[in-house]
Simulated assay, not measured.
Amino acid sequence: MELTDQERALLREIQRDSTLPVAELAQRAGMAQSTAWRRLQDFEARGIIRGRVTLLDAAKVDAGFCIFANITLADHSEDSVTAFESLVQRHAEIMECHKLTGGADYVLKIRTRDVVEYENFMTHNLLRYPFVRGVSSSVSLKELKSTTELPL
């Protein structure tokens, strides 16, 4: 999709702070308030803006333990893939799921309170299903960068 410089600026600003009034967003993007409002309505209608959220500090809400789990499926049948994707959607601990090329089939970003909670989650949720062949976990020692802003 082709975006004007002003539209890109508007989208950058709303990514940074979606609580800003339209007047402030418009001013920062260099456009009239009515134009900014129409663009935002259009972006929402077209699914470019999927939602507006509040970002929480994971450590302050007991979800500071971050794990990246590489998942290998037992097979790639439609039933196995569908069952795995359903499992992913059911668990709030799974923050992200990406299908991969290479050795693993998927990588999950999982957040829990601590290693004990992760071990319980892995044992009772990931490893109990026959469609999961294996899990290889890596613990994040330090988060150097985390953003939800797309580069525009």
Rank of each mutant, 00 (worst) to 15 (best):
D5C: 05
R28M: 02
A59T: 04
A74C: 01
V88P: 04
H76S: 06
L11R: 03
P151W: 07
A59M: 00
G47Q: 12
N70H: 04
R52K: 14
S18D: 05
L108N: 06
R113A: 04
E119Q: 13
L126V: 00
S137V: 11
V115T: 06
D79S: 12
L150H: 07
K99L: 08
A36H: 07
E24A: 12
R28A: 06
M122G: 10
R52Q: 10
E24S: 10
V107Q: 15
L87S: 01
A45W: 00
W37R: 09
R90Y: 03
D62V: 03
L55Q: 05
S18M: 03
A63I: 00
A59H: 00
T35C: 02
E143A: 09
H98M: 11
E85Y: 03
D42H: 00
C66Q: 06
A23P: 08
Y106T: 04
A74L: 01
Y129T: 02
R90F: 04
T54G: 07
L40T: 06
V115C: 08
E13A: 13
S146M: 13
E119D: 11
T19V: 00
V116D: 10
A36F: 02
P130T: 01
L3I: 01
R8G: 07
L73Q: 06
S86H: 12
E85S: 11
F121W: 11
N70C: 00
E78I: 13
D79W: 04
V88N: 03
L152I: 12
K145A: 07
S86Q: 13
T147G: 14
L56I: 05
R12W: 06
Q89P: 00
H76P: 04
G64K: 00
E96Y: 15
S18T: 04
E96R: 14
E93P: 03
L55K: 03
S146T: 13
Q6N: 11
T148L: 14
L55C: 03
H91K: 10
V81C: 11
H76R: 07
E143G: 10
